[in-house]
Design a protein around this nucleic acid. Structure first.
Lengths: 209, 209
DNA sequence: TCAATAGTGTCTGTTAGACATTATGGA
DNA sequence: TCCATAATGTCTAACAGACACTATTGA
């Protein structure tokens, strides 16, 4: 009989960079995981993510990995979940948990490395299909923060004027009416994610590979 | 202890439309499934798909579904796989298997309906990220066939000139040198999928939602 | 010759990206 | 005043889609 774990790779923006949540396991670090013995999968994954990362903005299955690679629980199968945490909620993690840089994921055991990789790839792949970048931010954010979240997920710089034009064309955000002063420079207006109005008819077939 | 199945939703082009592979189970129809008791997941899924659908061009995990919905095996968990079958290989399926129209998937039990839906959504979502449309075709194909495969997956018409321009810009296909006469009309040149040369730097951030 | 399909050239409106400029705060 | 950041306007090259046209076969 197979033993099954749920493993979650949670990401948040820390110190202007992407970070992944790990927990201490003796002398090592691991991704949060829990045994699964049946029942509602989504709820079990949500519970695991919430206990480890606090408020979770987004959660999705990212893959399944077998005993080809070693795992902290030696489970015969592990379901990988990707989670995104708003950075204002990322401070309150349990004592034995910590946000670590992406480079640190090579400290994980092989299966959890692959889980973290798959989770990151899933999130990156979905940036332009679903509002995942928003899930790294609080409900109200500046356009500079939103752009930076996209840049961190995409791994490349984004053109400011084009970014804002696209946001405007898609009617994706709406101003809250509030402004935020951050050090020096002109204050930035705060925005929130707007409700979907109409989905734009997609342009032509693209070959992004 | 949870019982686990692998379920595969295999798609192919039949009669100029997308079809999904089902097998007879008594008086009902079901998606091909098999119990899984550990071992290499990808290999087990590939074996299941191959036994049901013959040559399989593409296979990918599409989701995981729990006992919230009924399943032919009453498994507590089912891993959904999406498979694509080239239409020239789709004739040789076992006697108790048949290619059925997409509309027939509401004859499946609820969990397998969701599996088929998730598999179809996955394939559609990946059309512009990976050469999945090619996996519905033989190694050599006409551009009209390739365009039709994209149209079936995307569920909408595609502009011929733009489609070919994009193919050309991406250097995605190369002519085999052979031509095919099909009834009346000018013969069509045959193409094959070209090896990736350079991945074009993706354009700006797009919000396709 | 006609019908049918393959394949291409041209035009136009839209958009991405470069660049510059204005706006508004703190030091 | 100077500097840093926000926000926007203008220009251009690239591209998507419409349309028409040529090319090549079978009936």
């Amino acid at each position: 009989m197979p033993t099954l774990t749920l493993d979650v790779a949670a990401f948040a923006i820390r110190d202007d960079d992407l970070a992944v949540l790990m927990r201490r396991a003796g002398a090592r670090w691991e991704l949060p995981w829990a045994r699964h013995d049946g029942g509602a999968l989504d709820q079990a994954a949500a519970r695991l993510a919430r206990e480890a990362a606090g408020r979770v903005g987004w959660l999705s299955l990212a893959g399944a990995f077998d005993e080809t690679d070693p795992h902290p629980a030696n489970a015969s199968l592990s379901l990988a979940f990707a989670a995104l945490v708003p950075h204002d909620a990322a401070d309150a993690v349990p004592d034995d948990h910590a946000w670590r840089t992406l480079g640190d994921r090579d400290r994980l055991q092989a299966r959890q490395q692959r889980i973290a990789d798959a989770a990151l790839a899933l999130v990156r792949d979905r940036v332009d299909r679903a509002p995942v970048a928003f899930r790294l931010l609080p409900a109200a954010f500046t356009l500079a923060e939103l752009q930076r979240a996209h840049e961190l997920l995409l791994g490349q710089r984004v053109h400011k004027a084009s970014f804002r034009r696209s946001l405007d064309a898609a009617a994706l955000v709406e101003p809250t009416g509030e402004w935020r002063t951050e050090g020096r420079g002109r204050p930035a207006q705060l925005y929130r994610l707007a409700k979907r109005k109409r989905r734009a008819a997609p342009r032509s077939v693209r070959f992004d590979y």
